[in-house]
Design a protein around this nucleic acid. Sequence first.
DNA 1: GTTAGATATGCGGATATGCGCATATCTAAT
DNA 2: ATTAGATATGCGCATATCCGCATATCTAAC
Lengths: 119, 119
Amino acid sequence: MQELLKATRALSDETRLRILTVLLERECCVCEVMQALEISQSRASRNLCILFNAGFLRTRRDGPWVLYSLDTESDNHVAVALVNSLEGLLAGNEITVLDRKRLAEAERVGPGCVSRNTG
Amino acid sequence: MQELLKATRALSDETRLRILTVLLERECCVCEVMQALEISQSRASRNLCILFNAGFLRTRRDGPWVLYSLDTESDNHVAVALVNSLEGLLAGNEITVLDRKRLAEAERVGPGCVSRNTG
DNA sequence: GTTAGATATGCGGATATGCGCATATCTAAT
DNA sequence: ATTAGATATGCGCATATCCGCATATCTAAC
């Protein structure tokens, strides 16, 4: 029950639903998620972390980047089943279409360009 | 998106997951839900209301009772799809097994017996 | 070691949530 | 109209959630 609750709580937030939809498209680093959703770095990182802890994502390192992707082969049946349901339910949604469009134009540059271009 | 969010938020609570599991068994009035989950009347009523507003339930009156049941034929695809996923994920859960056991023994007597037997 | 870039996290504040308590509303019967 | 039973709801409190800000951590390159 606790595992399922953790998963449903993770899904009960618009930012995280949007992140999942972006990750349905392809593997992303944090800075790409930021750009796609037009949100802050800490917000992207935190919500990715929540999805990860709920069993939806896996990560790997590629140099300075941490790449997040959907864990479709997880032994966490809960997460896999719920993502499969969500995929159809989110398809065609206005917001997520925009997110994916911005993702397509996103570059793997870090958050520094966004939040620290003054110093 | 707002419709989906409303649904996922409704599912992000243990009490409501337990209520859904009980309703997967059969149609219930509020006082039966109270007895099955061993929770207060206001808690049962409120959470049923949240599930209803999220599109998971329908209601009908039977005399003094309001009967809640899963709205399996809803045009709310979101709710239908999510409940279908949940059904498998909750099957066999310890807590919900107990809830269903108590439901089997529940009687359609009102909350008065529980909360107002002193006055 | 130092530096710069990429990500994670402690903290505080605003807001949302879940609950119990008490009470209001609604129904049926008299 | 009155009463009793069944359900809904206003209110207040305790707690949880979400976010931005600032900072810490980690990696790679020098």
